[in-house]
Simulated assay, not measured.
Amino acid sequence: MTAVVLTWSPDHRGWPGHYPGAVQRVQETGGLVLQWTIEGLAELPLRSDAWLLGQGDPHRWGVTGHGILTSDPNDGAGDALLELDCLLPFGDGIPIHRLLQAVPEVNWSKPPATQLLPPEYEGPMRTLWSEHVAPASASIDPPSGMLPAQALKRSFVNRFEHDPDATRVAVAHHGSQCRACGFDFEVKYGKRATDLIHVHHVVPAAQLTVSYELDPVADLIPLCPNCHFMAHSRHPHPYSVAELRAMIDDGGHLPGTIVTEQQLRAEAFAQRLAEE
C-alpha cells in the first residue's frame, strides 16, 4: 500500500474551493470528492492513502484530513481525484510536534507539495490519526484512515442516518421491516434485535444544503444492513428503494439453484411494496 502526504496552505498552495465549506460538507455527508494536482512524483499508484497537511500559522500547522486517491481524469496531466472521508477544521489537525515524534522521516516543517510516506510509518501514522480523531467521534466504526484502503468498502452515509432520535421517529412511523426486502430483526432474532434496523436517507446526500431541515417521516426509511449497503454501493447517487425492490424482484436465486421459501417471500414482499 502506498501513502502520500499532500500539502496545502491558505497563502501558498490554496485549497481548491472554500475550506470551511468542505469541512462542513464532509461532516454532513461523510465524504467529498475533489480534483487535486499531484506535483513532484512521476508515478503514484491509484487507491493510495492521502494525508492532508495544512500550513499557515506555525501553531496551526498539522494533518487536517484523510482520503484516497482514485481515478486520474486527465491521463497524465498530474491531476487525480481525491476522495475525502474525514476533514478537520484548520487548526484542529494533528500538530507538527506530534507528527515529528511519531513519523520523523517526513518533512513536516517545510514540506513539498507531494511526498511519499515511508512504508514503515504507514502504521504509526494511522495509529496517530486514530488517537487524534477517535475521542471526538461517538461512532462504533473505526475512524476514517485507521484501516488501509484495501481493507475497506467505502460507503458514503449521511449523518442523519445515525441520529437516534430521527431513527426512532422513522421506525415508529414506517415500522421495523426493511422497506426493500421485508427483513425484520425482531422476527428473525427476537427481542434482543428489536432496535437494529437501519434507516436510509431517501434524498441523495450530495443534494443536501447547509440549511436542510430533516423530516424523519418523509426523509428516512427503514432498510436492513444488506439493502442499506446495496443502496450506497452506487455513489454519489444511491439506489432508490424502488430500484432495490426491482433488483430483488429480478434476482432471488442463481441460475441452476433451488429457490427457497424465504427467497420467495422476500420477492413477494418486494412486489407488494412496488405495487403500493
Score class of each variant (00 low, 15 high):
67 G>M: 00
186 E>C: 07
216 P>R: 10
177 Q>K: 14
224 C>H: 04
206 A>L: 15
150 Q>K: 07
121 Y>F: 15
45 P>S: 05
249 D>R: 14
124 P>H: 07
27 Q>D: 15
197 I>N: 10
29 T>A: 11
89 P>W: 02
99 L>H: 06
155 S>Y: 09
154 R>C: 00
69 L>S: 06
71 S>R: 14
175 G>T: 09
191 K>R: 12
235 H>K: 03
192 R>K: 08
253 H>M: 09
40 G>S: 09
10 P>H: 11
267 E>S: 11
19 Y>R: 13
72 D>E: 15
65 G>N: 02
75 D>N: 11
226 N>K: 02
245 R>Q: 15
232 H>K: 07
272 R>D: 10
39 E>K: 14
41 L>A: 09
15 W>Y: 13
31 G>K: 01
105 E>S: 02
67 G>S: 01
270 A>H: 11
182 G>H: 06
1 M>C: 06
269 F>I: 02
110 K>G: 01
247 M>F: 11
219 D>C: 07
219 D>N: 15
195 D>I: 02
100 L>R: 15
139 S>L: 13
52 L>P: 03
53 L>F: 11
202 V>T: 15
18 H>P: 03
65 G>M: 05
103 V>L: 12
150 Q>G: 00
88 L>R: 09
51 W>Q: 03
133 V>T: 15
8 W>T: 05
275 E>G: 01
253 H>R: 14
10 P>T: 09
166 A>N: 01
216 P>F: 09
193 A>V: 07
14 G>H: 01
158 N>L: 08
53 L>Q: 06
224 C>E: 04
244 L>N: 06
276 E>K: 14
215 D>F: 12
78 G>D: 05
164 P>N: 13
94 I>V: 15
88 L>K: 07
173 H>R: 08
46 L>Q: 14
114 T>D: 04
190 G>E: 06
267 E>K: 15
146 M>D: 02
172 A>H: 04
223 L>Y: 07
222 P>F: 08
89 P>A: 10
6 L>A: 01
157 V>T: 12
180 A>V: 10
140 I>W: 10
16 P>T: 10
161 E>K: 13
12 H>V: 11
26 V>S: 04
144 S>F: 11
106 V>P: 01
230 M>A: 12
156 F>P: 00
39 E>S: 14
230 M>S: 08
147 L>T: 00
167 T>H: 13
181 C>E: 08
1 M>G: 12
217 V>P: 11
58 P>I: 05
102 A>I: 04
159 R>W: 09
261 E>C: 03
262 Q>G: 04
42 A>N: 12
142 P>I: 01
10 P>M: 05
12 H>K: 12
210 V>E: 15
36 W>M: 10
87 L>E: 01
184 D>E: 14
24 Q>I: 02
17 G>M: 12
38 I>Q: 09
106 V>R: 02
68 I>C: 07
205 A>H: 05
271 Q>C: 14
126 R>Q: 07
275 E>T: 10
170 A>S: 15
17 G>W: 10
193 A>Y: 09
76 G>P: 12
136 A>T: 11
219 D>H: 15
180 A>I: 10
185 F>C: 13
244 L>W: 03
25 R>M: 04
7 T>M: 04
84 L>V: 10
94 I>N: 07
233 S>Y: 00
215 D>C: 13
100 L>H: 09
74 N>F: 05
159 R>T: 12
36 W>T: 10
255 P>T: 02
71 S>W: 08
40 G>W: 08
199 V>P: 08
18 H>C: 11
157 V>S: 07
21 G>R: 14
186 E>P: 00
119 P>G: 06
